[in-house]
């Protein structure tokens, strides 16, 4: 997978060892769940070397989540696309970074920002979280205020048409970007990716999910957002 992880902890007494444990966990996740490492649990399961009953509780949980989102999206979100290796990355990322945030909380951290490749978990805010503009890398399209919770964004601008609509087998192009705010990053990230795969109708689908707030930009550059999306008030310059 490979993405930069930024961590800011404002609590006194949270030392380097907590950050080390967090990064060790994320490296462990990469080794176990990467579809690009032939010796990962995911690849071994995909090749039939492991049976379902042999899987770790973690991978079983991840695959259960994948199945829930596949069913909820009518097959638009699918980690088993025909002719492709099993790729649960879309769920693994949010799930593992949420776990990492829970490591921080367990260590006593109360005020932090964890940003893993643009997916964000915060605690003890209010924090101002910018949403990257889908067309201008150095600009924002909105700013939200988040005290405790998570926000994830799915878009085409960086990795191109990499999210496939499982119903058609073709890349999803109906949206430029979609951001989802939820209580956990597990929910926010999977919902954002699944909604992106669905296209414009995914905006309504995500908005109807309990506890999710949505900010989406469609291919015509129109913004559609939920009323409850926590847009920050402007700060006096």
């Amino acid at each position: 997978m490979g993405f930069p992880v930024s961590l800011r902890v404002d609590d006194e007494g949270i030392g380097e060892e907590t950050a080390d444990a967090l990064f060790a966990w994320l490296r462990e996740v990469d080794a176990r769940f990467s579809p690009f490492r032939p010796d990962s649990e995911v690849c071994r399961y995909d090749r039939g070397e492991l049976q379902l009953r042999d899987l770790s509780a973690d991978l079983t949980e991840v695959l259960d989540l994948c199945e829930q989102y596949r069913v909820a999206t009518g097959g638009a979100f699918d980690v088993r696309l025909p002719g492709r290796p099993l790729d649960p990355c879309a769920v693994v990322k949010g799930w593992s970074v949420q776990r990492a945030a829970e490591l921080l909380t367990a260590a006593g951290a109360r005020r932090f920002i964890l940003n893993a490749g643009g997916d964000v978990v915060v605690a003890g805010g209010p924090w101002r979280v910018g949403i990257r503009h889908p067309e201008h890398a150095d600009q924002l399209c909105t700013v939200l205020e988040l005290t405790d919770g998570a926000v994830a964004t799915s878009a085409r601008y960086e990795r191109g048409d990499h999210i496939v609509d499982g119903r058609t087998g073709t890349p999803a192009t109906g949206l430029l970007s979609i951001s989802v705010v939820a209580a956990s990053l597990t929910e926010a990230d999977a919902t954002a990716t699944a909604a992106f795969a669905m296209g414009p109708e995914g905006v309504d689908w995500a908005a109807a999910r309990p506890g999710c707030e949505v900010f989406a930009v469609d291919a015509e550059r129109r913004v559609r957002r939920t009323q409850g999306f926590p847009v920050a008030t402007a700060v006096a310059a």
Binding site: S6, G117, G118, G130, I131, T153, R159
Partner: peptide
Amino acid sequence: IDTVSGATIT
């Protein structure tokens, strides 16, 4: 802002 959310950044 304090942080930025964006699509999976490389």
